[in-house]
Amino acid sequence: MSDDPKSPGAIARGWWRANLGARESAAARALAARLRRAAPMAALCEPAVMELARALHMGPGRADSLVRLVCLLAEVREEDAATLARRLGGSDPTMSPLRFQRLMRAEGDELITLLRRAVGMADRRCNVAALAQDLLYWEEARPRWCFHYFGADAPRDDLKESVK
Rank of each mutant, 00 (worst) to 15 (best):
S162F: 09
D64C: 07
L20T: 01
V119H: 02
C146V: 12
S96L: 14
D157H: 12
E24H: 14
A43K: 01
A152V: 15
C71K: 02
N127L: 09
C45L: 05
P5Q: 04
L84N: 06
Y149N: 09
L111V: 05
P93G: 06
R68W: 03
R37D: 02
G108Q: 09
R105H: 11
G21F: 03
R68Q: 07
M41L: 13
A82R: 13
E46D: 05
V128N: 03
E78T: 15
P40Y: 02
L114H: 02
G120I: 05
W138L: 15
L111N: 05
T83E: 12
A33T: 13
A63L: 06
L84I: 13
E24N: 11
P40R: 09
R29T: 01
R87H: 12
I112R: 03
E110R: 08
G120Y: 12
I112S: 09
L84W: 03
R62H: 10
M95A: 07
V119K: 04
P60W: 12
L103E: 05
A26R: 12
K6M: 13
R117D: 10
A10I: 06
Q133S: 14
A27I: 04
R102T: 11
A129D: 08
T94K: 10
L159E: 11
N127A: 11
C71A: 05
L136M: 10
G59R: 03
E107P: 04
V49H: 01
E24G: 11
E75T: 08
K160I: 13
E140L: 14
F100K: 02
A27D: 12
L98H: 14
L103D: 04
F100W: 06
L20V: 02
G21C: 02
Y137A: 13
R36D: 01
D153C: 11
E24M: 11
G14P: 02
D4R: 13
C45S: 09
L44C: 05
F147C: 10
S25T: 14
L66V: 04
V70E: 00
R125C: 11
L114Q: 06
R125I: 09
A28V: 06
D3C: 08
P93L: 15
A82Q: 13
G61H: 10
L159Y: 07
N19K: 08
F150P: 01
A118W: 04
S91K: 12
L35G: 00
P60Y: 05
L31H: 00
A26I: 10
L20M: 05
R68K: 11
P8Q: 08
V76R: 00
S96C: 10
E51W: 02
R62A: 06
